[in-house]
Simulated assay, not measured.
Amino acid sequence: MVKNIGIDLGTANVLINVAGDGIVLNEPSVVAIDTKNNEVVAVGTEAYRMVGRTPGNIKAIRPLKDGVIADFDITEAMLTYFIEKLNLKGFLSKPNILICAPTNVTDIEQKAIIQAAEKAGGNKVYLEFEPKVAAVGAGLDIFKPQGNMVIDIGGGTSDIAVLSMGEVVTSRSLHYAGNKMDQNIVAYIKQKYNLLIGERTAETIKKEIGSAFEAEESQEIEVRGRDMIDGLPKVMTINAVEVEKVLSEGLISIIDAAKEVLEQTPPELAADIIDRGIMLTGGGALLNNLDRLLAHHLKVPVIVAENSLDAVAIGTGILLDNIAKRK
């Protein structure tokens, strides 16, 4: 029997939803390659553990950048590994796949995503826009003639869209998201404290004390890295107010993009959004007080999805069910 699987092909993580089984895989989008012979050494969680800790001949690569494929062969190898690991290919059958992309993806990038899924072992491959799938996964009924707005902040992109009757009415996609937040924290600590840290450490800082609005100075975290002056290991402390300032400029770009989307939204749908609020999904939705910051600037209620991290993967399962029922 042909299996239907949904793939959230994220810049930071890959999630796979198998029809009838739910989300069966959630692993980092990282592949470790031996540069001497170009062989894959590790994929997913095992490869992520190697980031920043590999010898010279082992390179940990993120094959997706800004929500699209940056390295086709490695993306194909990663998807093939995950599909084989889950034993999703039958002896005579290949799984049907629904896979997601940002709203600003080009035709060439769409073809690359579909081709990677086909080469990894897919039969029929469907492509959907991430904010649409995230909205469905967060529990919004986007198929009625009413306005629904979603802000999906992932690892590589932030996608903002207004949806009605199952389609995207107006949208924006920008390259400020979770990974960029981490890079900005790395750059700040390097510039202010002459301390070199890795992006994994920056991600920990963001998760532990990161805040988008009204951060508390009493929240602190110890940071370990390498002193740029003497080259020795060093420990220092930073607080949540510093991290809020680092993140503020990028978060304003998300607010500005959301304002543009609202300005382009037909009045009747805009009225629905005032009543229904904005749904916030993706890993970035978990940043402390981000919902309050957005509500403060957009003057519209903002709700964080209960399953914000898994919303896209859950949405792929629901949309695959709809496709099966239509058939």
Rank of each mutant, 00 (worst) to 15 (best):
P63M: 09
P63C: 13
L64T: 01
L64G: 00
K65I: 02
D66K: 15
D66Y: 12
D66H: 13
G67P: 14
V68M: 03
V68F: 04
I69R: 02
A70R: 02
A70V: 10
D71Q: 07
F72S: 10
I74Q: 05
E76R: 11
E76A: 14
A77Y: 04
M78L: 12
M78S: 11
I83G: 09
I83A: 04
E84A: 13
E84F: 09
L86T: 01
N87H: 12
N87L: 07
L88V: 15
K89T: 15
G90E: 14
F91P: 09
S93P: 07
P95T: 15
P95G: 15
N96R: 10
I97E: 14
L98G: 05
L98M: 15
L98K: 12
C100Y: 05
C100K: 05
P102Q: 03
P102S: 03
V105F: 09
T106C: 01
D107Y: 06
E109S: 03
Q110R: 09
K111R: 12
I113D: 01
I114E: 11
I114Q: 02
I114V: 10
Q115E: 14
Q115I: 02
A116N: 08
A116E: 04
A117K: 06
E118T: 14
K119Q: 09
G121L: 12
K124E: 14
V125Q: 08
V125G: 06
Y126S: 11
E130H: 07
E130I: 12
E130W: 04
K132P: 11
K132A: 08
K132N: 10
V133A: 05
V136C: 03
G137F: 03
L140P: 06
L140V: 05
L140E: 15
I142L: 12
I142C: 07
P145Y: 07
P145H: 02
P145Q: 00
G147Q: 03
N148W: 10
